[in-house]
Simulated scan of single mutants.
Amino acid sequence: MAKPNKKGPSRTVDIFCANCKTPLYKYRKGGKGALVKCFKERIVTDHTKLGGVCPGCDTVFARDTLVRGTPAFKMIGGKVFCK
């Protein structure tokens, strides 16, 4: 399979914790679909201390994984929302 585009899309979204509304990431997202995964190279601003753990309420919102050979966070359904 092809690797994701390194530069990525120009549209950014803010990702927040669904439990405590703490900002987690500013992310360059492509497409109109739901947020399923976040490629680490597309994260513009990272507000977390540990990858995949909310700094406000210590809830695990994502799992560390490889998608198409590229490091990514796979989001757990209902734990995050984006604006």
Rank of each mutant, 00 (worst) to 15 (best):
D64L: 11
V36C: 11
S10G: 03
R68K: 11
T22D: 11
K37D: 00
Y25G: 01
L35V: 05
C82D: 15
K49P: 04
Y27S: 12
A18Q: 06
V13D: 04
A62Q: 08
L66D: 10
Y25A: 10
C38A: 03
K83A: 13
P55T: 02
K49F: 07
D14C: 11
P9D: 02
A34K: 02
D64E: 13
V13W: 00
A72Y: 02
C54A: 01
C17I: 15
G69W: 00
K6W: 11
D64C: 06
R11H: 14
K3E: 15
H47S: 09
K29P: 12
K37M: 03
C57L: 03
T12R: 00
C20L: 01
T65E: 09
V44N: 03
K74S: 07
D58H: 11
K40S: 15
M75H: 10
V36N: 10
F61Q: 12
D64P: 07
D14W: 07
L66M: 11
L66R: 08
G30F: 14
T48P: 10
Y25E: 01
D14E: 07
T48S: 13
P71R: 05
V13H: 04
K79E: 12
K21H: 06
T45K: 13
K49Q: 14
N19G: 09
Y27E: 09
E41T: 10
K79S: 14
I76G: 09
N19V: 10
C38K: 05
A18D: 02
R42V: 02
T65H: 05
V36P: 04
I43N: 01
F61Y: 13
F61K: 08
L24R: 00
K7A: 13
T22W: 03
I15M: 11
Y25T: 01
